[in-house]
Nucleic acid binder design. Structure first.
Lengths: 120, 120
DNA sequence: ATAATATATGAACAAATATTCATATGTTCA
DNA sequence: TGAACATATGAATATTTGTTCATATATTAT
């Protein structure tokens, strides 16, 4: 029994394909989480932070200097990265050193860089 | 000769690391493009569209029905995906069929799904 | 040609988000 | 204890962005 589609004004052209694909789709929540995860990669400040941390563990102040940004802006973005479990902090006195906390980042970067290098 | 850092109010703690990392960073434009690319993955509608197209080439109307969204909203997002060279259209009469146009998508999805499945 | 259908697109609106500013927290050193 | 410093955070602002609505374009059928 098909669910009523209310928001699409056009006719469904290929019923079979739609229901077949529908049955194979991962659940909504997984796809939402996936989008949330990639959203973290979708900001150049965060990309630059992760890129920097590929080379070295760094403290907030170093990162701010490197990126020529305020300490506050960097701290806010580190929080986003930390919540996504992409970076982890290591406290040493007053100083907090951040490093990458995920082995997928490198591969994801690689794939992304390959894609953009294939662009015209 | 170090550039003057104006926007970081704190002292640079590790000059050497900052300049070493700085020299190894890819250029700004590349990192900006990378963020723009991942931004496309950072929306659940676009994620769902790509996910659907893993299974089948689909027309706009089918996708709209599948996702229970308006044709217009889907069309706008397909445009974004097309501009990012992630999907490609195939026109057949009135109907436009979209399919995936990039072999990296699968790997990127895989990495992302692995990451979120590792969560607590 | 005209009507019907599938898709695309521009403008407007609402929601999300990155940075700034001010300030709080926590640690070290005098 | 108090000053100095590194970092964190809440609120405000400005910008970006996703969806809707109205309408345009393109193709097919009558």
């Amino acid at each position: 029994m098909d669910k009523k589609i209310e928001t699409c004004s056009c006719n469904i052209i290929h019923h079979e394909i739609v229901s077949e694909v529908s049955s194979k789709m991962p659940n909504e929540e997984t796809l939402y989480d996936l989008a949330e995860f990639f959203k973290v990669f979708g900001d150049s400040t965060r990309i630059r932070i992760m890129c920097a941390l590929f080379e070295h563990e760094m403290c907030v102040c170093d990162i701010a200097a490197l990126l020529n940004m305020t300490q506050s802006a960097v701290s806010h973005q580190l929080r986003v990265l930390k919540q996504a479990r992409l970076v982890k902090p290591r406290k040493e006195g007053k100083v907090v050193y951040y490093s990458l906390d995920d082995e997928h980042i490198k591969d994801i970067f690689k794939e992304g860089l390959e894609h953009i290098s294939e662009g015209r």
